[in-house]
């Protein structure tokens, strides 16, 4: 009977040092700070921790952060797909420029983005002044939070889906067409399923980015407790009040929920990918 090996031998040398370095690096950069976060809030005691994170203000902030981040990611998947479609499938003057514009939310300091968005969506701003008469207020409301999160998340969806859409085999659509599928059926039954794994990746990245977004959101949100205050801001407020344990408690809940969310998304990704490439 042959013993099962712990790892399959590889022709590539240096597995040991490479794995060691990877673990060290991840430990130093990711695990250690997070471990500190996990350790911190317990000085409140279990009951104190529970009381700290179930305050109505905390619950409202968590609800807004996760709700808006999910909604923003969903909005980004839909409109990011449209943007990607146009960038990949059509050739038009200024396409390269439009392609570059997609990356701007990556590069801009988020505070600058927040101030710019606020200026535009405020009641007297370019867009806000049109929306105000319709009874739609964006700046200083939860809707403003959503707008800022959509802004920062857009590139993630576009850049996740773009390479996959570029590599999409034109023959697939031609095959579908000769088999009698109309344009809508070709998109819904052939193209979108092929893009689904990339869309999920883009959703996960945009969600994670929106959840952690701070700079742009706090300018446009108005930050009214219980209404338009996001969880990261609440953490900062507690820190400023020297309530380090209370801040860590909120942080820990965010960490847990975010990990849960990303895990779910990755699982669905695995299932989607398994169908295509077993």
């Amino acid at each position: 009977m042959t013993a099962r090996r712990w790892i399959e031998p590889s022709v590539l040398p240096g597995f040991g040092p490479a794995l060691g370095f990877t673990l060290f690096w991840l430990g130093l950069l990711v695990v250690l700070p997070l471990a500190a976060l996990v350790a911190r809030p317990w000085e409140l005691g279990l009951e104190g921790f529970w009381r700290s994170v179930t305050e109505p203000r905390v619950l409202a902030a968590l609800r807004l952060s996760f709700g808006a981040a999910l909604a923003a990611a969903a909005v980004n998947v839909v409109f990011g797909l449209v943007v990607t479609w146009v960038l990949v499938r059509y050739d038009f003057p200024g396409r390269r420029f439009a392609d570059a514009v997609v990356d701007l939310p990556f590069a801009l300091p988020t505070a600058v983005a927040g101030i710019a968005l606020t200026a535009i969506y405020a009641g007297n701003g370019w867009i806000g002044s049109f929306l105000e008469p319709l009874g739609i207020k964006v700046a200083y409301t939860p809707l403003g939070v959503l707008v800022a999160m959509v802004f920062v998340g857009l590139p993630f969806v576009v850049r996740s889906v773009q390479p996959v859409m570029q590599d999409l085999d034109a023959e697939l659509e031609e095959a579908a067409e000769t088999l009698g599928a109309n344009p809508v059926q070709r998109v819904v039954k052939v193209i979108l399923p092929a893009l689904a794994p990339a869309c999920v990746t883009g959703f996960a990245l945009a969600f994670a980015r929106a959840l952690g977004e701070y700079g742009s959101v706090i300018f446009i949100a108005g930050n009214m407790p219980l209404v338009s205050e996001i969880a990261p801001l609440l953490i900062v407020i507690r820190l400023e009040q020297f309530d380090y344990a209370g801040a860590a408690a909120v942080g820990l809940v965010m960490l847990g929920l975010a990990a849960l969310g990303l895990l779910t998304i990755n699982l669905s990704q695995v299932i989607l990918a398994r169908r295509g490439a077993a």
């Binding site: 697939l172 095959a175 000769t178 009698g180 599928a181 399923p193 092929a194 169908r275 490439a277």
Partner: peptide, 20 residues
Amino acid sequence: SPRERRVGMVFQHYALFRHM
């Protein structure tokens, strides 16, 4: 149109729908 012609086309690289 290709849809109306009702011809069966077989491609060199199969062009199967991977997710089906």
